[in-house]
């Protein structure tokens, strides 16, 4: 029985153990893997007697000696700890998602935004509301210097005139208020053209480009209203903007569903368009595309398959690609206070609708009980702010005992609400997928770290927190 203070993992034959409360990662052999299934830090004799039929006793004693050394160094069986004092009770705004268009020129079958209108009327944000939102962000962020604004929809480019005004205003206010604003725009790509690409590049706007894999899969899920596929139009735009940025400052982001569980192949098809890739599971309840229990073993095998290809290419066999969920920095990363805050929805992060309503995040838009105010009134639900702030991995019963808690930050509140009707109850299906891809990420980055220590070129991904890299003249290569 594995001790809850550690987690062992196997990915494609490679093994590692995570010391949950310190973050230490160790690559291990099979004997250590088996020993840690019994050993709890104190029961040496029981461990030897349990495993002596499989391993030589002197070797078992040697392994236990190594494990005791790690314990003395604070790298194994580290004890649990309390919420750090630095986790402030009063949150400070760090990011906003501006719904510049509750309208879209596509009719994607799984869209949580109800094909763009979020279940309401089709509506575009005005420049006045957009500017008010920028002011709300600057005021709410108080002395915090770094701010993030995501331009979202629907499809933001159906309202490009207003998008331009908002971006220009944000850059102006940024200087006046001595802020550093990271701007991101999420688009289906079909409306990208020379003019808007130039504008987005000139204004250092990161882009998230929605692509679901190869042509067949993408067209099946992401059609135009006349039911024709959008792949050709989207990829034309994506290739143009990626080339204009020398392969920097973008992510291709896809969604897999019950109809596309063999997603590894789709990810590899995406590498023909760009090398910065994220592919995420759809979240549903009863819709035909909803992932099922029977899909899970297939999905896990796909992550293993993708991990094999990812490692092979980073070790020199083919062109490396970036996969968002395999990006884990083992040497650094945010402090625990930051890990508890997670995405910040409902306390550090809000979504603003076209009419200026405030919701905890883009996925809560349209769920009336979560409306938190308007740009005119400000946030008028301190009860909700407090609830979101204090719903984290050290307060949620299921999260408290999960080994992945300091990596996942408790999962998505909106999914928990959608599936369980309660943000304090994690969406367990999503947790299982999250744990699988975290195991892949930890083992992959551990192997690449060891490669580096042994003298190979450092092929770990550059985790730049999706910050706009200025002045890149050479193609991105890892």
């Amino acid at each position: 029985m594995e001790n809850q203070l550690i987690h062992r993992m196997k990915v494609n034959g490679d093994m590692a153990v995570l010391d949950v409360n310190s973050g230490a990662v160790h690559l291990i052999d099979e004997m250590v893997y088996d020993v840690l299934g019994v050993f709890d830090g104190k029961n040496d004799e029981e461990t030897v007697s349990t495993l002596k039929n499989k391993y030589d006793e002197s070797e078992l004693v040697e392994v236990l000696g190594e494990l005791h050394e790690l314990m003395e160094e604070g790298l194994l069986f580290s004890p649990e700890f309390d919420v750090p004092e630095t986790f402030a009770t009063e949150p400070v705004l760090k990011s906003l998602c501006l719904h510049v268009a509750h309208d879209c020129n596509l009719r994607c079958k799984y869209c949580f935004a109800g094909t763009g209108d979020f279940g309401g009327k089709r509506e575009l944000m005005s420049a006045e509301t957009g500017k008010k939102a920028i002011d709300f962000a600057i005021t709410g962020s108080r002395k915090r210097r770094n701010l993030e604004i995501d331009l979202f929809g629907g499809e933001p480019l159906v309202n490009f005139g207003v998008v331009k005004e908002i971006i220009q205003y944000a850059r102006k206010r940024e200087k006046e208020a001595n802020k550093n604003i990271k701007l991101t725009l999420t688009t289906n790509g079909t409306l990208l053209n020379d003019e808007n690409i130039q504008f987005l590049n000139d204004n250092r706007v990161m882009v998230v480009l929605s692509l679901d894999g190869g042509k067949e899969m993408h067209d099946a899920m992401r059609p135009f209203p006349n039911k024709t596929g959008s792949y050709d139009a989207a990829v034309r735009g994506f290739k143009k903007i990626i080339a204009s940025r020398k392969g920097w400052n973008y992510y291709l982001r896809g969604t897999y569903t019950h109809f596309s569980t063999h997603f590894a192949e789709e990810v590899l098809k995406m590498t023909e368009v760009g090398k910065e890739i994220s592919m995420e599971p759809v979240v549903g309840t009863t819709e035909p595309y909803t992932l099922t229990e029977e899909d899970l073993p297939v999905l896990f095998a796909e992550y293993d398959k993708l991990a094999t290809e990812y490692l092979k290419r980073r070790r020199g066999e083919g062109e490396p690609f970036d996969f968002f969920h395999f990006n884990v920095a083992l040497d650094n990363g945010p402090c625990v206070a930051k890990r508890l805050a997670g995405c910040g929805a409902g306390h550090e992060y809000y979504a603003i609708t076209p009419s200026g309503e405030i919701y905890p995040c883009h996925q809560f838009v349209g769920r009336e009980q979560y409306k938190m105010g308007t740009l005119d009134t400000g946030v008028v639900r301190p009860d909700l702010v407090k609830k979101f702030r204090n719903t984290h991995v050290m307060t949620k019963p299921e999260c408290k005992k999960c080994w992945a808690r300091f990596f996942c930050s408790g999962g998505c509140h909106a999914n928990a609400d959608l599936v369980n009707g309660d943000i304090t109850k994690p969406y367990e299906y999503g947790c299982r997928i999250q744990r699988k891809r975290l195991e892949c990420a930890i083992v992959l980055q551990a192997l690449l770290t060891e490669d580096t220590k042994e003298g190979a070129e450092d092929m770990r991904p550059e985790i730049d927190n999706f910050k706009f890299q200025v002045g890149k003249t050479e193609e991105k290569r890892k």
Partner: peptide
């Protein structure tokens, strides 16, 4: 030098 364990990182959780 440990024979069975390679420590990859130094405990990062240990603002």
């Amino acid at each position: 030098m440990k024979k069975h364990v390679k420590t990859v990182n130094k405990a990062m959780l240990n603002g």
